[in-house]
Design a protein around this nucleic acid. Structure first.
Lengths: 349, 349
DNA sequence: AAAAATTCCGTGAACGTGCACGATAGTCTA
DNA sequence: TAGACTATCGTGCACGTTCACGGAATTTTT
């Protein structure tokens, strides 16, 4: 309550210095003797001093900047949602004197990511927000950010063995794989599930790995004799995709279960439409317009989604809070809810 | 961009008055001639002037207050979630010099609501946030708030024929009833669904009315010959509840479908446990701890939920924004997503 | 027409922080 | 020991509002 009435001058008096000195230790920009710094820190502690954000904002001139390092995208793609969320967050923090900048790379090209990350370091922003599509390269980049004392925040995917990130927000990925498996098999008996098709995209450092692991765990536990077939498709080549799918259906005419762990289930539109009439359960991820359209048509049964926009907006918010008040978030790992979308509740999403 | 560089002094110069006068028209607190007021308004318009929120916050001394008018509650009840959300919002706007106060009433007692609403008017807060449990009384109260120029915001439920509210946030209630019906009947054929039990609580001005209408619409359309039986229970009398339920199951030994439109499905714990083993589909609302527990036990199949906490926190945020900048929200009706909870995805909610 | 009342409006001191500037004391060089 | 340097610190203006105070202009009263 009244803690908010304590000003930098109260602290200065208590520490026996001037407000200039208190300010210097607050933003640790040096030029303070160890002795005074200690006194000031003690005074801050004892008075429970919290700087007034608004006075601070009013007085500081130089705008801070956050860089969002993310894949370039085309319309209707998953990353477009992420982008929109960032833009929402940008609008909210704009009046906090915080600018959001973007740097894009090719999600299928590691070197493209590396050179983009170089540019980030050159720009020396106040903070970075990014997904971790390439585990290794992202890890290296994160270490360099750490050295440069630039805080960074993961969205959607993170580097598993990194421990210096400011925060992460995304779906619990193994769990989402399990939920996916549970929804795919519904209340089928053990004998019902003999063959499952997993459609995948061949790429370096598959970001859906953990999701697949969760999926397989569930299947192995509950349907031990089910066979899982991988179908690899090329997202840039519809003809190849349709051919692969046709080949699969020819080989497995009674195929009933199909799943895809990324947001691209819409790539199967033609293949699924061609098989319309067969009894099939198809589960995909993310509420992209084209995916929703497939669900309307009855070609996809369930989509597992998250509130991507809100999630990335929150990442911006958190980073902005940190830049302003240097307060780290209480919980670093923010798991969002695994939303189940069916044709019943999709329209209100 | 640079519009934010325009200050109240720029406006004053352009209008040929002093900043004091500009401030007076900004907060229309009188003592300004019609002529100057017009000039100032024109200058504001032309310069596209937007007051600096932080300078404003810093300079203003008197804290504003928002009153949350809501039902009193016991632990684990739906309204506890709402309350927690309000508290979250309160924490966020606290440093904006905005205080949140609560006023509670008995949700089963109209007069209790009326007298509580009187107290609100006496307190003359900057804004009010409330659900509309009693349509008529709330409508009257809303009109008096309107007269007193106190903005108000609906959460969860709103008054249907009110058009002066600042905003509303809640679930699309008829739709939620439809989703409920769809989930209850799953992929049953028409012959499967002969009898449906709707468990209700007898009270004045049932707030679940629209949800029930949506439900009935769906059933009538898709299962025209299904019979719907109402079971009325007293939430304060478990013995009566169990007796009513037993009576129903005796009369309908093959009952397979049961639903409850409020958050109290947990009141049926004993009755459902006693019937364990029978094949039943039970759908309820809201992710209360006790409801989730029933789902874990397999006594409830689906819970339809919303992010109550976030929803009420957002209400506070919106009201706070309005009090500070007088900007009304772009969309008044905020519909939240209808979340489907099953045992598969409940743990991450 | 002077006095009183009223309406209207300008002035300047806050609000709490950031930061440039310059001051002070102590240290070092020659 | 004077001058130059360095490390450390205090001072005061700026940021864009709000609002109390009092003055000027206008109208009303006597």
């Amino acid at each position: 309550m009244e803690s908010s009435k304590i000003t930098i001058i109260d602290v200065a008096k208590k520490a026996g210095v001037s407000k200039g000195t208190v300010d210097r230790v607050l933003h640790n920009r040096g030029e303070v003797s160890a002795k005074s710094a200690e006194k000031v820190r003690k005074a801050i502690e004892e008075l429970n001093f919290v700087p007034n954000v608004y006075a601070s904002l009013l007085a500081s001139k130089k705008p801070k900047t956050i860089i969002c390092l993310m894949p370039e995208f085309t319309e209707g793609e998953f990353w477009e949602k992420e982008y929109k969320g960032f833009m929402m967050g940008a609008a909210q923090v704009k009046e906090l004197n915080i600018n959001i900048e973007f740097l894009f790379y090719d999600q299928y090209d590691t070197t493209s990511f590396v050179s983009a990350s170089e540019k980030v370091l050159e720009a020396a922003p106040g903070g970075v927000i990014m997904p971790a599509l390439f585990q290794e390269e992202t890890h290296k980049f994160a270490q360099r950010l750490q050295e440069a004392e630039i805080p960074y925040f993961y969205v959607d995917t993170k580097v598993m063995d990194d421990d210096n990130f400011l925060g992460y927000i995304g779906m619990p990925r193994r769990d989402s794989g399990k939920v996916c498996a549970a929804l795919l098999t519904g209340n089928c008996s053990v004998d019902d599930v003999k063959e499952i098709a997993v459609v995948r995209i061949k790429r370096e450092g598959d970001p859906t790995k953990r999701r697949r692991i969760g999926f397989m765990d569930y299947i192995k536990e509950n349907f031990p004799q089910a066979k899982v077939t991988n179908i690899f498709i090329d997202p840039a080549d519809p003809a190849q995709t349709n051919a692969e799918m046709a080949k699969y259906f020819e080989k497995h005419p009674k195929a009933r279960f199909m799943v895809m762990f990324n947001s691209r289930i819409h790539l199967l539109a033609d293949a699924l439409a061609a098989r319309k009439g067969h009894r099939m359960t198809v589960v995909g991820f993310d509420d992209l317009p084209r995916n929703l359209e497939l669900m309307r048509q009855g070609l996809v049964n369930v989509l597992i989604a998250q509130h991507t926009e809100e999630q990335s907006a929150r990442a911006i918010q958190t980073m902005a809070d940190y830049l302003i008040s240097k307060k780290k978030p209480e919980v670093r790992d923010n798991y969002v809810h695994i939303d189940i979308l069916t044709r019943h509740n999709m329209e209100n999403y």
